[in-house]
Design a protein around this nucleic acid. Structure first.
Lengths: 182, 182
DNA sequence: TTTTCATATGTCTACTTTTACATATATAAT
DNA sequence: ATTATATATGTAAAAGTAGACATATGAAAA
């Protein structure tokens, strides 16, 4: 049970999902590919933390819908209580900024513009998630309090929105710094 | 030559540093331990991208001071021109927020408070770096423009400062959301 | 009708990262 | 005197990750 396993349990504690759906849904929270996820699901299934049901689909290929078990929920509950490790950051942009004096002006500009674009498209995705979260909250008749399953996800998406907004602001500020007397 | 190798070149392009110093200096930019760094330095030395000088010290153990070579600088220049990959994010907090409904109120509070504390201590470190950068800039008689070696590092540290401030703001906002009617 | 795309699940290899092991010098504190 | 800490450099094994390989269904587009 590594961190990614607990992450999968976290997602499954809110909804039953297939490996494919987990691969997509985890993207905004944690970088992981499907080649990591499928083996972990099989391992957790064998350990009894999750179970699956084969869903036959006529319009799409069949899928395995995974659900968290009581044992899995207990495992997750214990993990949630442990303190969160500091985030792992690995951003090439940091190195490229560090050696920016080696760049041509247009390249430096492009570097920041592309990052800004990336963050803006991410921001749009998060805004969609925020709306979906609101809809789900209303559907379930939940309010914004700790015990509501939509609440933590609301906080999380807001975090990502703030992160992206902050990154965009940095890029735009840096682009201004790049072109002084203009 | 992986990304970390280019990062080491980026640091060495500004200053000659030992493996130990590189291990410390890279921390705010990229998560890496000394066991990754020493082998890469040896490999890059063999490839001629860096060279070292044995510095005998009387107050501390001797060290190897690495410097970037012309070949290394050329290598770095080519890399800087290539677009930056999206950042890799792996933050346990995301998963713990997702499953926050499983937490007790005190635990949820502690989770956010501890992250806020971490970010505040990081912020202090960055503010120190910002002042050091200013001092260095003045020493070198540089201004805030692309060609100055201190400029990119100035942008970078400002980025980290903004990142930390944004994270702290999130934690404080979330803590308020956690305790409504009070 | 063939190709492309989204869905869906898996494996394998190479590479990267983490953690522990290992050693050594010099200072400062107990 | 001993212990702890900061500096300094390395290695090895285990774990985790990325990218390619592999296959298959069904829908939509060319």
């Amino acid at each position: 049970m590594n961190t990614l396993s607990y992450g999968l349990l976290a997602l499954l504690s809110a909804n039953s999902l297939s490996g494919y759906e987990l691969t997509q849904n985890i993207k905004p929270l944690w970088r992981a590919g499907h080649s990591q996820i499928y083996p972990l699901l099989m391992s957790m299934e064998q350990q009894g933390y999750i179970s699956y049901q084969l869903i036959e689909q006529s319009d799409k290929p069949d899928k395995k819908e995974y659900s968290i078990t009581e044992a899995g929920l207990e495992q997750l509950r214990n993990w949630v209580e442990t303190p969160a490790e500091p985030p792992v950051l690995r951003d090439e942009l940091h190195f490229k900024l560090y050696s920016l004096w080696l760049s041509k002006p247009e390249e430096a500009k492009e570097l920041l513009q592309k990052r800004a674009e990336f963050c803006k498209s991410e921001l749009e995705r998060y805004k969609v998630l925020l709306k979906a979260n609101e809809v789900l909250r209303d559907e379930r008749g939940e309010t914004r309090e700790l015990k509501a399953t939509t609440f933590g996800r609301y906080l999380l998406i807001r975090k990502r929105v703030l992160d992206m907004e902050s990154s965009i602001q940095f890029c735009e500020w840096a682009l201004e710094e790049l072109e002084p007397a203009k």
